[in-house]
C-alpha cells in the first residue's frame, strides 16, 4: 500500500492537478502510450512501407519482411512521441491537440521523450541486425529528418514546413524497398516523390479548416502566413504536379495498365476535389463561407487516394 500515494506538490509549468495525478500513476493508461505513437499517421506509414517491401524485386523471408515493417511502424511511432514531447506547448493551445496525453497531463513530458528515444534507437538497431544496414541507415535518416528538420527546425519557422518536412513521411517505401534489395534505386525514389508531392495538398487541406488553431499556436502554416486564397492556389499547383508524377511508374514499365488506369481515375478524382477547394464560396480573403466543406472532403479523399494508388501498384506487381 505504501506506493499508493499522490504527491501534493505541482510543477513549475502550472500543471499542478494533472501532474500530481500523473506522478501518482492514476492518470496514464496504456491507451495514452499508444496515442503518443500517433496510430493514424502510423497506419499510412506502415502501409506505404509495406508496399515498398511488396513491389521491390527479390525475396525477403516473411519474418524478416514483417520485422522490417514493424521497425518502420515503431520508428514512425517514436517520431510521433518525440514530436508530441517537443510540441506540447502548442498542442496545449490547439483545440485539435489539447486532449493529447502530454498537454492534458496524463503522461509526463520526460516520459514521452524517453519512450520515443528508446523506440527510435531500438527500431534502427533491430532493422540493422535483422534486415540490413542500408534499410537501417535510411530509417535513421527518416527519424532524424522528422525530429530535427521538420519538428524542431522548420515547423515553427517557415510556411514551407510541410513541403520540406513532408519528405520525412515519404521515406517508408524507400525503406521497404531497401529492406528487400539492400539498395535505393529509381523506383523507390519515384514513390518517395509521389508521397512528397502528395503531402502539401493533403496537409494544406487540413490546415485550411484548422487555420484558427495554427494561428492561435503561432505555427506559420501557409494559410496563416499567406492566406487561404494563396493556399488554395498552392493546393491546385501541387495536385497538378502529383497526377502526372503518379503515372511515372507506368511510363517506366515498372507497372501495368491496372496501375496506370487506377492512377488516372484517382488523379481525376483528386483534381476534381482540389478544384472544389479552389472554387469554394469564400470571402475577399479567401476564407470559406461553407465551413471548408470542400477542403474537408479533399483531405479525406487524399488519404484514400494514396491508399488506393499504392495498393494498385502492389496488386499490379503481384499479378503482372
Amino acid at each position: 500500500m505504501s506506493d499508493l500515494t499522490a504527491p501534493s506538490a505541482g510543477n513549475d509549468r502550472g500543471e499542478q492537478s494533472s501532474l500530481s495525478a500523473h506522478e501518482a500513476g492514476t492518470e496514464d493508461d496504456v491507451r495514452d502510450w499508444i496515442a503518443l505513437l500517433k496510430p493514424r499517421v502510423m497506419s499510412l506509414v506502415v502501409f506505404t512501407g509495406m508496399i515498398g517491401v511488396v513491389v521491390a524485386p527479390g525475396h525477403l523471408h516473411p519474418i524478416l519482411a514483417f520485422t522490417a515493417v514493424l521497425c518502420i511502424a515503431v520508428a514512425a511511432g517514436a517520431c510521433g512521441a518525440i514530436n508530441m514531447w517537443y510540441d506540447r506547448d502548442i498542442d496545449a493551445v490547439m483545440r485539435r491537440t489539447q486532449s493529447r496525453p502530454i498537454p492534458s497531463g496524463r503522461i509526463a513530458a520526460g516520459g514521452a521523450l524517453g519512450f520515443g528515444i528508446v523506440l527510435a534507437v531500438g527500431s534502427v538497431i533491430v532493422m540493422e541486425v535483422a534486415v540490413n544496414l542500408v534499410a537501417a541507415i535510411v530509417l535513421a535518416i527518416s527519424i532524424g529528418f522528422y525530429v530535427f528538420i521538420y519538428t524542431m527546425w522548420l515547423k515553427r519557422r517557415t510556411p514551407q514546413n510541410i513541403v520540406i518536412g513532408g519528405a520525412a513521411g515519404a521515406f517508408p517505401p524507400v525503406i521497404g524497398w531497401a529492406a528487400v534489395t539492400g539498395s535505393v534505386d529509381l523506383i523507390p525514389l519515384i514513390l518517395f516523390a509521389i508521397v512528397f508531392i502528395w503531402t502539401p495538398p493533403h496537409f494544406w487541406s487540413l490546415a485550411l479548416w484548422a487555420n484558427e488553431d495554427y494561428r492561435r499556436a503561432g505555427v506559420p502554416m501557409l494559410p496563416v502566413v499567406a492566406g487561404a486564397k494563396e493556399t488554395r492556389k498552392q493546393i491546385v499547383l501541387y495536385s497538378l504536379l502529383l497526377v502526372p508524377l503518379s503515372l511515372v511508374p507506368w511510363f517506366l514499365h515498372f507497372s501495368g495498365a491496372l496501375y496506370g488506369g487506377t492512377a488516372i481515375v484517382l488523379g481525376i478524382g483528386f483534381l476534381v476535389c482540389v478544384a472544389r477547394v479552389y472554387r469554394d464560396k469564400q470571402d475577399e480573403g479567401g476564407n470559406s463561407l461553407t465551413n471548408d466543406a470542400p477542403a474537408r472532403a479533399a483531405f479525406k479523399f487524399s488519404i484514400l487516394y494514396l491508399f488506393i494508388l499504392f495498393a494498385a501498384l502492389a496488386v499490379d506487381r503481384l499479378i503482372g
Binding site: T5, P7, S8, A9, A24
Partner: peptide, 8 residues
Amino acid sequence: MADFPRPL
C-alpha cells in the same frame, strides 16, 4: 518539513 504524498 518534508512534503509527504497524500495516500490514495
